[in-house]
Each structure stands twice: as C-alpha cells, then as structure tokens.
C-alpha cells in the first residue's frame, strides 16, 4: 500500500515511565500519551484484589474533557484491560494520560467555532487514543498479552472505502467504523456509526484488517511480511528504533 504511514515516536517525555507520540496516517491530529505504572491506587475503593486498576484521562487540544471524552476514556480503558496482564501487579494502578496536542481545524465552520463539539463524532479520536495508549504501555514496559492496533474506516455515499479518512472525508461519509485488533487478529473492539448494510460493514472490516494486521491468505493464516506496511509493522519498527537508541546511549 502506498498510503502514508502512522508517525510514531516513543519516549518523548522524560519523567513519566513510558510515553508515546502518535500521528495517524490522516495526519488530522497528534496525540501524546504518558504512562505511569505501577502506582499506588489513589482511592482505596478502586483497589482490585487480583487485578490492576486502570485510569485513563483524555484531554482535548482546546478545551477541558467533557462527556464525550469520558466515553472515549472508558473505551480505551476496556481495550487496555484486554491487552494488559493486570494480575501481574494486583492492587496497583496504571495511569494513562492522553493529551491531544494538535488537531485539524474545520475551516467550513463559522469563525470562532473550532469543532470538537459534543455532537461531533468521536471515532477518529478513539482510534488514535487506543493506538497511542498501547504504544505508551509498550514504552513503559507494562506486561502485556500482546499489542493492539486500531484503525478508522469510512464508507462514502457511493460506497467507497477509505482507511484513516481526513476531516472532509469523515464529514461526507455515510458511515464511520473503528476496528481494534489484538495480536492474533482477534476483534477487540467494534465501533460503528452512520447508516450501512451488513455487507458494507464486512468489507470495511477486511480493509481494516489489512491495514492493521496484514494480508489474510487462505482465509485463515495471517502472513507477517517484513515489507508490509501494516500498523503492527510500524509499531515493531518504532520499538526496534527505541531499543537501538537506548543501546547507543548506554554504550
């Protein structure tokens, strides 16, 4: 695929245990995640005897977090619960703070309104937030079952699929979909809105799978090739670079 890749930078923050900077291929926003782990649980009532308590807070670029952000946080938390081995650090907390540092501004809106209102779709932010949170956990050395990767797919009025649509394409789309895949390609999260048929959704799922996990051959096995520009390959490359950089600093 010749489409642009996700931009990933690991460990941009010095003082947190782990951090990541992520820009999706649509380049419509940049998110920064800071992970601190393991911490004391701040409220005793939140302590889980045999699991790690996960706290996610999401801050938009131009306002304070409101109802929409609370919902995104709860979904990111559920994905992290799926990938993190929480029982390794029981009674502890994983703190994940995500800051949107840069967002595409909708020029068609009247002056002063920068978008991002309560009514605007949260799917693009959700997909990027999941990716940056997982990358941050990788950087912090959180014990995980495997990684997870997320992608947005839009279906336009004429039925065209587009992965990581830009702001204009998202506004004109008939439906928007987010898919999150686990290490073995299992569907960790579905989130779709709009107006669509089951067949369209199925096609969007295959397109999303190709972008995140890789090409599916014989309907069963996932082929991991070095030259495939999947999200998982990008994550792998980012981690390799981070390890190399660390090695140079030590040596």
């Amino acid at each position: 695929m010749s489409s642009p890749k996700s931009k990933i930078q690991l460990h941009p923050l010095i003082s947190s245990n782990g951090s990541a900077l992520y820009t999706p291929p649509s380049a419509s926003s940049t998110l920064l995640a800071g992970i601190n782990y393991p911490l004391e649980v701040s409220y005793r009532s939140n302590e889980i005897p045999e699991d790690t308590y996960i706290e996610v807070s999401l801050r938009p670029n131009n306002a304070v977090g409101m109802v929409k952000e609370r919902h995104i946080e709860s979904l990111v938390k559920k994905v992290l619960q799926s990938v993190i081995l929480g029982q390794e650090t029981p009674r502890r907390m994983l703190q994940c703070t995500i800051q949107i540092t840069d967002a595409e501004i909708d020029e068609s809106l009247p002056g002063g309104v920068k978008g991002g209102g309560q009514g605007e779709s949260y799917l693009e932010t959700l997909a990027s937030a999941i990716n940056v949170a997982v990358l941050g956990c990788l950087d912090a050395g959180v014990q995980m079952r495997g990684i997870a990767g997320s992608v947005v797919v839009s279906i336009s009025r004429d039925g065209k699929l587009k992965t990581w649509p830009g702001l204009k394409q998202r506004k004109e789309a008939r439906s928007l979909h987010v898919f999150v895949y686990g290490r073995e390609g299992q569907n960790l999260l579905f989130e779709s809105e709009g107006d669509f048929e089951v067949e369209e959704w199925d096609a969007a799922e295959s397109a999303a799978r190709t972008v995140v996990v890789g090409k599916v051959q014989d309907g069963e096995d996932v082929v991991m090739e070095e030259d495939q520009e999947t999200l998982f390959a990008s994550i792998r490359q980012a981690v390799e670079e981070r390890v190399e950089r660390d090695g140079r600093q030590k040596g």
Partner: peptide
C-alpha cells in the same frame, strides 16, 4: 431492508468476531 445504524463491542479477549456479530 436491514440498515445498521450503530455497532458497539468492547472488552474481554475478542471472542466475538465478525461472524458472531452478524
């Protein structure tokens, strides 16, 4: 015909796939 307006699924280990959701 059947139009889908919203799909949501999250949490767990991803035991429910595309077929299950259909």
């Amino acid at each position: 015909s059947t139009r889908v307006l919203r799909i949501e699924k999250s949490g767990g280990t991803g035991a429910l796939g595309v077929q299950g959701l259909k």
